[in-house]
Structure formats: C-alpha cells, structure tokens
C-alpha cells in the first residue's frame, strides 16, 4: 500500500509538487501520468526518501520499496552479467566482496525465471536489448521481495513489442504476488488495459482515482486551469487543450493544441 498525504516538494525558487494526495491499496496497478517536467520523478524520489518533502507525508507500509530508476548507465563495456545486477539487488549496499552463496544464487535464479530472463542471465548486461535490460532492472528491484514497486518511465525508449512485454510482466507480478506497482509514464495509452488506478500530475498538482474518474474533460480542465478535451479514438485516449483555450504555462504556449498522449 502507498499513501501520499498533502505532499509539497520544492527546490529553491521552484515549487515542483503542491499538495499531492492519493492512496493506493495493496495490489494496485497505478499509472503516474504527466508531461515531461510535471514532477513525476520528484514524486517518486520523495516516496523513496531520497528527497525530503517541505510539507505532508508518505506512508509506504511494511516490506520495503523496489525501484527502477529512469536513467541507467549500462555501457557495453561494463564487466557485469545480468545475474550480477540482480544479485546486487539483494546485497548491493553491503560491504565487502561477495562470496559464493548457494542461497543467494537460488534467489537470483528464481527471480530471473519469474521475469523471464533465465536465458540471458549470463550475458553481459550492456549487450542486452532495451526490453531485456528493463526486465533485469525489474528483477533487481524485486529480488528482495518488496511489497511496493516504483518504476520511472520504464517504457520510454522501448520498441512497441518490448513495451507490451514489460507491461505484461508487471501485470503478472501484480496479479500473482499482490505487489503494488506505480509506473510513471508520459503516455497513458499502453497502460490503459492493465492499470486500475491513475495519478495525473500537471503543474505540480494532482488528481487521482480510477481511470474513468480521472481522465474526463471536467476533471482535467480543473487540474490544468483551462479547458481540456478528452477524446477517445479506437480505444485510445487523447488529452488535448481545446482550441482557443488559453494555456497559462510558457511550456504550452507554442501552439493552440497540446497533446499529452500521443498514440
């Protein structure tokens, strides 16, 4: 479970999050949706305890948090196998050189099997495809069996097939193990079939609830402060600023139509 209560976070001269509230029961699959710069990463880093909030509080329940960060530096020259990355999820914070341990090996092997990465477990992690690397990072985050998993833009820079694979994997984990998953994304469409909760961030503020409750013209219009249209096309959702609506932020001032979800 995850509770975020009237959370405000800012840096000097820049208020990033203002009074963000939401509650996710255990076993939720939640999308954290917003454009670039809307504060998604800041929110995730605050939940992790890497940033200190100015106001409000975060409760994450027992069992620890797994985290898949946005920017991972996996250059092809790194002498690190996929299984080493997963093993670092168990004891990467410990001191000393790792000694061979059958129990750790078993834990790593079963985790690799769960995410469908057994066949490339011994390959160099920098040589793997984007989707495969994302599986390994998810295994890394889950190997200590946390009850809450945060992923920062895990679908960015993946091809369409890998996106579907990663989402199917996350869905399986939520269903089978009752893990709470919070995935940030700038495009909600790939997540629509699986997510049962949504937190929509815009201009530092948020609305949350089920997809039907949140992704509506009236709700998003009051979040953005100007008229927003929600258009459904072939089961996909487009969120656009209505023609003639006055965007208030400079970021959106370049054109009459602002599309946050690109099909």
């Amino acid at each position: 479970m995850l509770s975020v209560d009237s959370l405000s976070v800012g840096f000097p001269g820049n208020q990033v999050l203002q009074d963000v509230n939401f509650h996710l029961p255990q076993g939720s699959f939640c999308g954290l949706i917003g454009t670039n710069g809307s504060g998604k990463t800041t929110l995730l880093r605050t939940i992790l305890g890497l940033l200190r909030p100015d106001k409000g509080k975060v409760e994450t329940g027992d069992g620890g948090i797994g985290y898949v960060p946005q920017k991972i530096q996996l250059d092809p020259f790194m002498p690190l196998r996929a299984r080493d990355v997963v093993a670092l999820g168990i004891d990467g914070h410990r001191l000393g050189v790792p000694l061979p341990s059958p129990s750790r090996r078993r834990a790593v092997d079963s985790m690799l099997a769960e995410v469908g990465a057994a066949e490339f477990a011994n390959r160099r992690v920098g040589d793997l495809s984007g989707g495969q690397q994302q599986r390994i990072m998810i295994a890394h985050a889950l190997v200590r069996r946390p009850r809450l998993l945060l992923l920062d833009e895990p679908l960015a820079n993946l091809d369409i097939r890998s996106v579907a694979e990663v989402i199917a994997l996350l869905h399986k984990l939520v269903v089978e193990q009752k893990i709470t998953v919070l995935v940030s994304a700038h495009d909600m469409n790939p997540l629509l079939p699986v997510m049962n909760q949504i937190v929509y961030l815009a201009q530092g503020r948020s609305v949350s609830g089920s997809v039907e409750e949140v992704v509506r013209s009236s709700v998003l219009s009051s979040l953005y402060g100007y008229h927003i249209d929600v258009i459904q096309v072939h089961g996909r959702v487009l969120v656009v600023a209505a023609v003639g609506a006055e965007p208030r932020t400079t970021e959106m001032a370049h054109g009459p139509v602002h599309v946050t979800s690109i099909p």
Partner: peptide, 20 residues
C-alpha cells in the same frame, strides 16, 4: 576498496539505486 566493492558497483549503474 574491497569493502566498498558492491556499493561502488551498484552506484555506477545508477546513483539512485543506493538507498541506505
């Protein structure tokens, strides 16, 4: 260096991974 082996390795993947 040997004591810090694993944390150094982990933080070279991403600085956010070290959460202690």
């Amino acid at each position: 260096l040997l004591m810090l082996f694993r944390p150094l390795l982990l933080s070279s993947l991403s600085t956010d991974l070290l959460q202690t």
